[in-house]
Design a protein around this nucleic acid. Structure first.
Length: 451
DNA sequence: GTTTGTTTAATTTGAA
DNA sequence: TTCAAATTAAACAAAC
């Protein structure tokens, strides 16, 4: 049985569970009881879902509803879009913008196709299959597509032609579209700071170089979704910039000031409507590694702020009976993983956690950049924690810095100047981090949907 | 000649 | 409404 604390929640949850799993009735009437002392969710009720900024909601995974893993030549391919990717331009947005709230996503994410909307909850089978539908432009930005291709390739670098191939293989639209999109891809690779070119070795045959995601900006690609557009300048960058600017040797501050460090942070600021190159171009692309904010700034961040653990998915799993057991819903264990007993990766050994939401958001973003670990490894090593993790989350999910290090060593030749160090976190710190984390993920709002 | 890569410019779109 | 991200188009050069 799940261990839920708040009696009301527990009872509601129990009712719902019993509707779905009447076979467990015996257990309930038996000796098993709701442990009210160890895994209380009372604290959840203190979180303000109103204050949570959906734009910065790190933990919600729309793939949960829409991102299916198909197999095509060993690569991942999407069907319907991660709604968090609002980078779509070819795809008409719904009046109720799917990015505006988690609950709207949860309850009635709608996708427009040929003039009518699809409600995922009511009829998920109507998801658009972009792999076969040549008429609907995938609602992914080019940057997202590039990242998808890179990620699907399971290699650290990928050629332009491979990017083309992956896109055409997995998105029918581009198979028949005018080839101008390839120009846009190239343009994106060149202009987008997130991508860096890896020159081909002299003895390496072939045309052109390789491309990879600049680890400095890897945080922009989360769970297959390229974060989009500017952060609110006032609540994201202000403190961060002051810190970064005061950080010796870091040029990050001057850069992020330009655009708020949103994804698609193209090189050079925009003056009026014209872009003007200010930063060192081409030649400096490869040298950016050394000035990565991920590697030079003081806060290496909290894993708990990563947000890739989607507690709601656990609810989903349990309620859908998707190979889950009640043990899988051991919220307490999950919370332990997230903070209450967690270790925090931080460069700043003297850090006291995060003083406000901005810091948390920044830390979260930076954490993402460091978190490229293979979740299968993670799951194997931490299965004892009873945290059921959706397979589709594996790719981007990381909770433990050692996996990051391992991953970097194994798969990413990216230069890591400084390694994150795990430091013990006190309960107070952990609680505070938990609070920040969950206020961001609007967990309560999601959990409420089940009650 | 084709592909790849860079750059500029204009336009569209979305968030604040 | 404004600003900036994202897209689109195009020109050009270098490499294959």
């Amino acid at each position: 049985m799940p261990v839920l604390m708040s009696p009301e929640i527990a009872n509601k949850f129990k009712e719902k569970w019993m509707m779905l799993h009447p076979e467990d009735q015996d257990n309930v009437s038996g000796s098993i009881h709701f442990d009210d002392s160890l895994t209380s969710l009372h604290w959840l009720q203190n979180f303000s879902i109103l204050s949570a900024n959906p734009e910065r909601t790190p933990a919600f995974h729309p793939q949960h509803l829409f991102y299916h893993k198909n197999q095509l030549g060993g690569t991942d391919s999407p069907s319907s879009p991660p709604a968090g990717d609002t980078a779509a331009t070819g795809m008409p947005q719904t009046p109720g913008n799917p990015t505006t709230s988690c609950s709207s996503l949860m309850n009635a994410y709608v996708h427009q196709q040929t003039g009518h909307y699809i409600t995922a909850q009511t009829n998920p089978s109507e998801e658009i299959d972009y792999k076969t539908n040549r008429h609907v432009k995938p609602p992914y930005s080019y940057a997202t597509l590039i990242c998808m291709a890179m990620q699907a390739s399971n290699k650290t670098k990928i050629t332009l032609s491979a990017i083309y191939s992956w896109i055409t293989e997995n998105f029918c639209y581009y198979r028949y579209a005018e080839p101008s999109w390839q120009n846009s891809i190239r343009h994106n690779l060149s202009l987008n700071k997130c991508f860096m070119k890896v020159p081909r070795q002299k003895d390496e045959p072939g045309k052109g170089g390789f491309w990879q995601i600049d680890p400095q900006y890897a945080d922009m690609f989360v769970n297959g979704v390229f974060k989009r557009r500017r952060m609110p300048a006032t609540n994201f960058n202000t403190q961060r910039q002051s810190k970064l600017l005061s950080s010796p040797g870091s040029s990050y501050g001057s850069q992020c000031t330009q655009t708020g460090m949103g994804i698609g942070d193209f090189r050079g600021p925009v003056l009026g409507n014209k872009r003007k190159q200010v930063f060192p171009k081409r030649g400096s692309k490869l040298s950016r590694i050394s000035k990565s904010p991920l590697l030079t700034t003081e806060i290496k961040t909290s894993d708990v702020l990563r947000g890739d653990f989607d507690l709601a998915s656990v609810f989903d799993d349990v309620l859908s009976g998707n190979d889950s057991t009640f043990e899988d819903l051991d919220i307490n264990t999950a919370l332990s993983s997230l903070g209450c007993e967690m270790e925090v990766s931080s460069q700043n050994q003297h850090g006291n956690g995060y003083s406000n939401e901005d810091e948390q958001a920044c830390a979260y973003l930076e954490a993402n950049g460091m978190m490229g670990c293979n979740m299968e490894d993670f799951h194997q090593q931490h299965h004892h924690q009873h945290v059921q993790v959706h397979p589709q989350y594996y790719e981007g999910m990381t909770l433990f810095p050692e996996q990051v290090q391992q991953q970097h060593q194994q798969q990413h030749p990216w230069e890591i100047k400084e390694e994150a160090h795990a430091i013990p976190l006190s309960m107070d710190h952990g609680y505070g981090l938990c609070e920040g984390f969950f206020s961001e993920m609007q967990l309560w709002e999601r959990a409420e949907a089940y009650l």
